[in-house]
Write a protein that binds this DNA or RNA. Sequence first.
DNA 1: AATGAGCGTTGCGTATTTTGCAATCCCAAC
DNA 2: GTTGGGATTGCAAAATACGCAACGCTCATT
Lengths: 244, 244
Amino acid sequence: MSQSLGRALQILKSLGEGERSLDQLATELGVHKTTVLRLLRTMEAERFVRRDAQHRYRLGSQLFALADVAREQHVVRQVAAPHLRELNQKTGQTVHLAAWENGEVIYVDKLDSVRSVRMYSQVGVPAALHCTAVGKVLLAAQPKRQREAVLATLDYKVYTPNTITDADRLRDELQVTKERGWAQDKAEHESFINCIGAPLSDSTGRVVGAVSLSVPDVLLNYDQVLELLPELLATAEAISADYN
Amino acid sequence: MSQSLGRALQILKSLGEGERSLDQLATELGVHKTTVLRLLRTMEAERFVRRDAQHRYRLGSQLFALADVAREQHVVRQVAAPHLRELNQKTGQTVHLAAWENGEVIYVDKLDSVRSVRMYSQVGVPAALHCTAVGKVLLAAQPKRQREAVLATLDYKVYTPNTITDADRLRDELQVTKERGWAQDKAEHESFINCIGAPLSDSTGRVVGAVSLSVPDVLLNYDQVLELLPELLATAEAISADYN
DNA sequence: AATGAGCGTTGCGTATTTTGCAATCCCAAC
DNA sequence: GTTGGGATTGCAAAATACGCAACGCTCATT
């Protein structure tokens, strides 16, 4: 594994949180300024970062170009997009699309509620596995080995009083999820927000992603959210069907 | 300048053009497979790239997250966005926002024509300096040293019969551009597309970006495009005013 | 089922590359 | 003009990345 590259990627992620000065970055990484400077220079040359007149660094425009492509390259996202929009319009609720990527569950697309209630999730960022509908769906779909490995290493961070906090309870929950074909999140990640999620499969039956609906309980209580289940499952079906 | 990082960035750019296999990448870079593999692995660990079941590599979701931020961090873009939308709606034509970045002119934002006539430009990608309205505007605004340096090293690639192909003619054109305060592109970059562009200045008068309108001549001939000039200049004014 | 081709992957020694230090430079403020 | 903070460069030491060659894996072909 490449050290300098690793550091460079850390720099990019740090710049993602806001602009930084040279030795701000050096301090964060715990390396010498010189090192950071040279990494920044190579990235600047390729427009991955840019530097303003006061020598503050920000992300560069090359990332725009790549990111747009990255989105399009996400096959799941491409296929799912129109169906998600439909689901979003029909229900008026926040819709998430997530995919299993490298041992994590990543939000790949998000359509906000028409009521524009703020939600913490963000496209490109990993979802918690033990307390989100998409996380449960995708974790439940993993082969046993992998699933158990994850169960053993999860940190079971407590987000709300409802958060599942140990491997045994989560294992049971995944079992249920798998059997009935959809997952719930009863205010386990964000208080006052309930979610339901369903898996997307390719033609071989392999699960390639998950869709979810998130509804703040000021709008609908949990039972009312369950009434949206048919819509959700229909959407998941439709996407899976399109996905050849 | 960091070699391994440089190669990694090349890989990312290459993946931007489509998915690649390991030694496809190795061949492109002219290095050993092993080298590429390790770079890919570090990038995969940070989700800058991902790998499907058939070991083909694509851009990863970390880029989504970063790029969204990068866009927001572009101050010019942030300030300009609403004004661009207005200009786009009023004129119905394609609007571009570009900024000077590291010796190049980069498209930072783009709003398509309502007629959705295809244009080649893409956000995050450099614009040609000698044959685009934004290129001329921003080049004309550079200090003389820099401007002459660029004039001397440009490749004056010929895109259409109207493309300016030598430094002397371009120098004259820049002079005109600077004096009248806006630039034209009479089918110099794409045949049948005329553009006009105007500079954006901060409070000190320093030019920080450029806006342009692009119109295919099946819609409007050049003189009709000139009738949009007041709108364009008003937009540029408004953005500059907002940009404190 | 056996063979082989085409990839991806790993261990390892070498040498290139990267790193941190210290000195220098630049610019801005006093 | 001087001072100070930050950026920058040259250099030598050392860690790191590199390519090689061997190994493994998967898939297709016989």
